[in-house]
Design a protein around this nucleic acid. Structure first.
Lengths: 197, 197
DNA sequence: AGCGTATGCGGACACGTGTCCACTTGACAG
DNA sequence: CTGTCAAGTGGACACGTGTCCGCATACGCT
């Protein structure tokens, strides 16, 4: 599966493309593919061979951020109960999304593209971990998949520049509420004092 | 607000554009704007003046369907308790969305465009009615707006051709669950005989 | 070093979108 | 009926995307 080792020039081209994309994004929030190709001194073909879609390019550019997001899932799970960890993590995603719109595109492949059918990427795996913990804890519905969550999270990419940024957290509340088991915070299997709705 | 009465030729142009768009959509699911202009025998300028975005054109083409969707909200509210009506209505939306992708675009303005800031269109009003009924009944969270629902429903437009069509109902379940009050089906105030589901 | 070839290059191209503006024409006054 | 002019027209244009393919060259082999 590891692609048969790139030629030396191909490797440097790829690296240069990513660097140029990073630079462009730091000045404007636009990322026209042909501008990337031109600035990187490669043809459109080269660009598109390395990164078939803009999302692929953004995913590479923001890989460090995505890794951090993934790591934070583990951290939160260590510090809080599963439900709280999940909730906080969703807020993390929203924060990243607001600051770097590209991060969204980087996780978008999880919802819309064919490659995502089975492999939802590192983010999908992070969500799986959160879901599994919540399921075990009894606070998260058992019929939720990481794919579901990714699709629901897709709304973030539609909010962007509108003043709607503030509504992100509210909607995340609704979504999170939807992921929970009926009882609310406590699963009632564990002998917790249920406050009752 | 009524635009100052169009010139006769303008009116017929507009009608022809809509008709042509309808025809194009019935053969392919594509709707290239310049193809519409060409087939309608008008210039790009005319097309774009009448319908600034593809969504605007689709909204016009599918207006009858949207009206029907809106009407079904009232019907359902007459036949069921608010929660059930809401749930059924969401399924209606998903069904329309699967059959005619354009309907989605027609309601999309509610989530992403500026005009939607306050006026979410007829669909928004239908949702408002469902929300109000559910709120009164005590089964729907009081802090949910039609805008929230429209944004959440946006996921439907991302599902399209993928085999994900079947997952639409599942995700609607999650969303609907998120809109409900804690107690679940019964608000314990109204003793309605809800079959549950 | 010299060679053959698969690998990668890069830009022309086909196609789509949306804007702009010089020109046309419908509607109404005289 | 005719003149007037704002409303309306339509297509050229600027810009973006993504594909295709003839060509260059890096790499492995001798």
């Amino acid at each position: 599966m590891a692609e048969r080792r790139l030629r030396a020039d191909a490797l440097s081209n790829r690296a240069r493309i990513v660097q140029v994309a990073r630079d462009l994004l730091s000045s404007t929030s636009e990322l026209p593919m042909n501008a990337v190709a031109k600035a990187a001194g490669v043809g459109q073909g080269t660009l598109y061979r390395n990164f078939p879609t803009r999302e692929a390019l953004l995913a590479e550019v923001y890989r460090a951020d995505v890794d951090q997001l993934v790591a934070s899932a583990g951290t939160l799970l260590g510090e809080h109960d599963a439900a709280t960890a999940f909730r906080r993590w969703l807020d993390n995603v929203a924060d990243y999304a607001r600051v770097k719109r590209g991060v969204l595109a980087a996780l978008e492949p999880g919802s819309g593209h064919e490659l995502a059918a089975s492999h939802t990427g590192p983010i999908g795996e992070a969500i799986d971990r959160l879901l599994a913990a919540g399921r075990e804890e009894g606070t998260i519905r058992a019929d939720v998949t990481s794919r579901d969550v990714l699709i629901l999270l897709g709304f973030l990419s539609r909010l962007d520049e509108a003043s709607a940024a503030e509504s992100a957290h509210h909607i995340l509340d609704l979504i999170f509420h939807g992921l929970r088991t009926r009882g609310g915070e406590r699963p009632r299997a564990e002998g917790a004092a249920e406050t009752g709705g």
